[in-house]
């Protein structure tokens, strides 16, 4: 009984908080009508309109496509380059100075240049999203690969694995916990870069939708778009956590043992 009420209580509090916020908004909009405070019903309508019909194809799906494409490119490139850098020591002095420099350039700053080079295209937006989110993955993968226990590498060598097999079968799995922590950071950056990339020279996507409705004083739609971006972030993060929980099930048990040994 105690365990049951303990698990339900936080959920109830969270639901309660949301209901309270919605109620405050609702009554505030009735008693104090203003452009910046549209009735919550209209925001909800705008939100639902984004999920189907014409807006689904002109706002939600283009954004999702760019976000996922850029994010996947960042994860793949970051993992591959990072793991190569972390395990092939000879590569490091050649690549690291350039990367250390590039990572301090905010992705927003390369947006105008990317627009010049690639035009107002999907590729440009995907590139900007990938550029912004690749570095956390890359640095985490480098770090993870560098910290692989040398004994495991010895085991792989005695087992006759080639360098590529070693990277694939030993370094990659050993670095995965680290890679995942980078991937989580990358996801939030990718979301930011998706919105920003759609505020410039765009004619579709959620960023463009929000900007256009702001210019038309359609405040309810602006809020609907913002809430939709929050929803995307939430769903993708939950998905990522579920994948991580599955892929890294071994890591929780192993880390527990390591900590027990140390303590």
């Amino acid at each position: 009984m105690t365990a049951r009420s303990l698990t339900i209580t936080p959920l109830a509090w969270q639901a309660g908080t949301i209901v309270a916020l919605v109620a405050i908004w609702h009554w505030a909009a009735i008693f104090h009508p203003a452009v910046y405070l549209p009735p919550i019903q209209r925001v909800a309508d705008g939100y639902i309109r984004l999920c189907h019909g014409e807006l689904l194809f002109s706002a939600l799906l283009p954004s999702l496509y760019r976000l996922l494409a850029g994010f996947v490119v960042a994860v793949v490139v970051g993992s591959v380059v990072g793991i190569a850098m972390g395990s092939l020591r000879g590569l490091d002095p050649w690549v690291r100075p350039t990367l250390e420099y590039l990572r301090f350039i905010p992705a927003v700053a390369i947006l105008p240049a990317a627009l010049l080079l690639l035009g107002p295209t999907d590729q440009m937006r995907i590139f900007v999203i990938a550029f912004g989110s690749v570095f956390p993955v890359l640095l985490a993968a480098t770090d993870g690969a560098r910290r692989v226990d040398p004994t495991l590498i010895d085991v792989a060598r005695v087992s006759g694995l080639s360098t590529i097999e070693r990277l694939w079968r030993v370094v990659l799995p050993a670095a995965l916990p680290s890679v995942f922590s980078g991937v989580r950071v990358a996801l939030s950056i990718a979301l930011v870069m998706m919105v920003i990339s759609e505020l410039i020279a765009a004619d579709d996507g959620l960023g463009f939708y929000i900007l256009r409705n702001q210019r038309l004083f359609q405040t309810a739609n602006v809020y609907a778009g913002v809430l939709m971006i929050g929803t995307i972030g939430l769903i993708l993060t939950l998905t990522l956590l579920a994948v991580e929980k599955r892929v890294l099930a071994w890591h929780r048990g192993w880390r527990g043992l390591m900590e027990a040994n140390r303590g």
């Binding site: 495991l152 085991v155 060598r157 050993a174």
Partner: peptide
């Protein structure tokens, strides 16, 4: 130059020589 195929090694730290995944 590399470990011959007929050679096997058991390393000192068992908790570092098994693949935890």
């Amino acid at each position: 130059d590399d470990p011959p195929s007929w050679l096997s090694v058991v390393f000192q730290d068992y908790n570092r020589s098994l693949f935890p995944w």
